[in-house]
Amino acid sequence: MSLTVNLYYHGQNGSARKFAEEMEASGVAQAIREEDGNLRYEYFQPLADPETILLIDSWESQEALDVHHASPMMGQLAELREKYDLHMSVERYVSAEEAAGDEQFIRK
């Protein structure tokens, strides 16, 4: 069972996008992608809200996420959030083992 956390970074005057760009340029985002148990770490921008950046962050297990949360990288993240004066909202999803019949609705 994996879990996905959607983090919405809300800012002003393009600060959320600047945060995501610095996360990528500094190598912090890539370092997180390389952590044991990380399945996905990607930034997106909603078309209807240019002041928000969505981070989709997926992990193999709660234990892998806990190790990430205890890492020194979290300090770097906190500093960048402060630098860009970002506020956050969060959604959390746990994967189902089976698609429960949803395959018929997925066009590949």
Rank of each mutant, 00 (worst) to 15 (best):
L3D: 09
L3H: 04
V5F: 07
N6L: 06
L7K: 02
Y8P: 00
Y9T: 01
H10C: 06
G11M: 09
G11R: 03
Q12S: 12
N13A: 13
N13C: 08
N13Q: 09
N13M: 03
G14M: 11
S15C: 04
R17A: 11
A20S: 02
E21M: 12
E21C: 03
E21K: 12
E21A: 09
M23F: 12
E24V: 15
E24P: 05
A25L: 06
S26Y: 04
S26T: 12
V28L: 15
V28Y: 01
V28M: 12
A29E: 00
Q30I: 04
Q30S: 06
R33T: 10
R33N: 08
R33E: 11
R33F: 08
L39D: 02
L39P: 01
R40D: 14
E42S: 15
E42V: 14
Y43V: 06
F44N: 13
P46K: 05
P46N: 05
L47E: 02
L47H: 02
L47V: 15
D49I: 09
D49K: 11
D49R: 13
P50F: 11
P50Q: 07
P50T: 07
P50I: 12
P50V: 10
E51W: 04
I53L: 02
L54T: 03
L55D: 01
I56R: 13
I56D: 01
D57E: 15
W59I: 01
W59C: 05
E60I: 01
E60T: 11
S61W: 09
Q62R: 14
E63Y: 13
E63G: 07
A64K: 08
L65K: 08
L65D: 00
D66W: 10
D66C: 08
D66K: 14
V67A: 15
H69Q: 13
A70R: 15
S71K: 07
P72T: 10
P72E: 11
M73V: 11
M74G: 07
M74K: 12
L77S: 02
A78V: 06
E79D: 14
L80V: 07
L80H: 04
L80E: 00
R81Q: 09
E82S: 14
E82F: 01
K83T: 02
Y84Q: 10
D85A: 14
D85W: 07
D85G: 08
L86R: 00
L86S: 01
L86P: 00
H87G: 06
H87Y: 04
S89H: 11
V90K: 15
R92E: 11
R92I: 11
Y93H: 15
Y93D: 05
Y93C: 09
V94M: 05
V94P: 00
S95I: 01
S95D: 15
S95A: 15
S95N: 14
A96Q: 04
A96C: 03
A96R: 03
E97Y: 09
E98W: 11
A99K: 08
A100T: 10
A100N: 15
D102Y: 14
E103A: 15
Q104D: 10
Q104V: 15
Q104R: 15
K108M: 03
K108L: 10
